[in-house]
Design a protein around this nucleic acid. Structure first.
Lengths: 203, 203
DNA sequence: GCAAATTAATGATTTATTCAAG
DNA sequence: CTTGAATAAATCATTAATTTGC
């Protein structure tokens, strides 16, 4: 029932492994061109579209946060219960990091990360593809405790300096900078890791 | 400062008028092909991309809801104040429509309304353009009162029956159905209305 | 009048919810 | 129950109005 009109994409084992590997390596919100690269690569292992990749990262990130929040909230409940009995263990734990809710990393992207309008194809595109890896932190806010957990992450974001009005001189492929092609798929194309024994999920 | 590298789109007066007209006519979440049509048309009046149209509708809809919610909450506050004095005016108004929070209209779309993956361009697209107007209601939930206001709206949505795997037989332009080209821009191309005298804003 | 400083609108992104397929 | 897909809500960031001091 796979090739026929099955309504939603379901990743093959290999696709899933690669996606998780990329996620582990730090990718959270891939840019449009990253999505394209990943999609092209993953289509070697089965039918896939860009939006699948986009949604996968979106959901995976969100559900990771959710998991972490639940874990924290459970820990906190435990601690609070302990405080009821003991009354003086860590009285100030809820007072740290309060104030910066939500997310911090927004490096003033000018490119648009996910939306490619249908007409963009006919308008010259002007998608400056020079990107740059960038370290940034991620805050996870626990609504029950107002605790914000910092989670260090390597985001790949856009270079603000490439905002120049690229008309047609973009065809000269080498600008002044080294043209860093981010190593999504270094050289080894198929071999992922040796351990293929991890079960799909473990509750 | 318009043609140079100004970072964000700002609609011309004509573009704005057309967008608002379309919104008034009932369009809330235009499909990909609708976005394309609108964009093509609006580009007669200035630089514009599909994502601008997409974001415009998204924001306009959201801020309409927001405005409505605030109005309702004010009304409710007034009524509650009255109840303090009068104590029996509409005691059950807060008990209706509770339960269905958020949005209801999800006509099981198989097409994707806004996301066009970068790779879709190279995968044959398969954008089945046959659409169908569809009446659906819109619920506006007031968090302060748990009242859900119904707002009747005409959404243009996707025909689920066109989910067949359109390979190349799509070039024969006439399928069995009448091929309803939704009348976004009927015939009059440039003339909007006669009244161009309304001031930009009136507080 | 007219810029600098503030404020209000609104374009653009990201996160949170929700629905439903498997 | 897990998770792909879609939409709503919250937030950020830039531009336009508006105010203010001169």
């Amino acid at each position: 029932m796979s090739p026929a009109g099955s309504s939603r994409w379901s990743p093959t084992t290999e696709q899933l492994m690669i996606l998780e590997e990329l996620y582990r390596s730090g990718i959270r919100t891939p840019s449009a061109s990253q999505i394209q690269q990943i999609t092209t690569h993953l289509s070697l292992y089965g039918r896939i579209e860009g939006k699948n990749v986009f949604y996968w990262f979106q959901n995976h990130k969100a559900r990771d946060r959710q998991k972490l929040r639940r874990k924290l909230s459970k820990q906190l409940q435990l601690q609070q219960q302990l405080q009821v009995h003991h009354c003086q263990i860590n009285p100030d734990i809820t007072n740290h990091y309060v104030g910066t809710f939500g997310y911090t990393p927004r490096p003033s992207t000018q490119d648009f990360p996910f939306f490619n309008s249908p007409t963009l194809l006919f308008q010259g595109g002007a998608a400056n593809t020079s990107e740059q890896a960038l370290n940034c932190t991620w805050n996870v806010h626990n609504p029950q405790s107002n605790v914000v957990e910092k989670e260090e992450v390597t985001c790949y974001n856009y270079d603000p300096s490439t905002l120049v009005d690229v008309n047609n001189q973009a065809s000269s492929c080498c600008t002044s900078r080294p043209l860093k092609t981010l190593d999504l798929f270094p050289l080894t194309t198929t071999r992922i890791t040796e351990d293929c024994t991890t079960p799909p999920n473990q509750p």
